[in-house]
Design a protein around this nucleic acid. Structure first.
Lengths: 108, 108
DNA sequence: TCTATTGTTCGATAACAATCGAACTAAATG
DNA sequence: CATTTAGTTCGATTGTTATCGAACAATAGA
């Protein structure tokens, strides 16, 4: 079984987090997870190839934004809310609030 | 005299803001302006060519993060704190707080 | 008017990123 | 064991970006 790399909470870099969330597709994924909780990759409703989705999930994981848990053939993705809160207080919630009010109501 | 494009407050895009701030050089510039207030481009102490600095300032300006005011031969750069606060409450301060505690004390 | 000063723009380069489809891997299930 | 399901990885393509130096533009000052 594959072991997936996750940065430790204290290794999470601000630049990587901001970069990961600057992509509309990834922000949409994060927004969806924030609303609906942990879910497997196959349940995301985004109009992209599965290899591209895999790439985006990986970017989010390596940035420290999501945790990926393997169960059978499925990969369950959840937000690292507490880790991010400790490292960068209010950052995630503030960005999600901003996304809620603007980005998500217009595009994607 | 050149007229510089600035997006209106309500046109500022979250993705563009996050992207602009994900670059370490640009985050450093914004952090400096936040600490020291408006200043001209020539006062930034960053180890890059002036054409590169010009490019970064432009990226920040077009993202809606800074306002550039021309006075003589100098370009004075300031944060669009209020505009950003209205559009994305707490976003800038939260990111700057995160940068203060981590990024800026380690690198650059 | 000549010369600094300040910054932009241009052209080139090198690195990186988003995207896709095809091939692959691993687990569950018939 | 064969098949389906769920994702990853690879190779290719296309586009973007960070960087530099050189040339340019505009203003201020001698």
């Amino acid at each position: 079984m594959k072991i997936l790399y996750h940065p430790a909470a204290e290794e999470i870099q601000l630049g990587s987090v901001l970069y990961a969330l600057s992509d509309p597709t990834r922000l949409c994924l994060v927004h969806t997870i924030a609303k609906q909780g942990e879910q497997s990759c196959s349940t995301f409703e985004v109009p992209i190839a599965k290899s591209t989705l895999s790439h985006h999930i990986r970017t989010l994981r390596e940035a420290g934004i999501v945790r990926v848990r393997i169960q059978g053939t499925q990969h369950f993705v959840s937000l690292r809310t507490e880790d991010l809160e400790v490292r960068f207080p209010n950052l995630l919630s503030t960005i999600l609030q901003a996304a809620q009010n603007h980005t998500m109501t217009e595009e994607l």
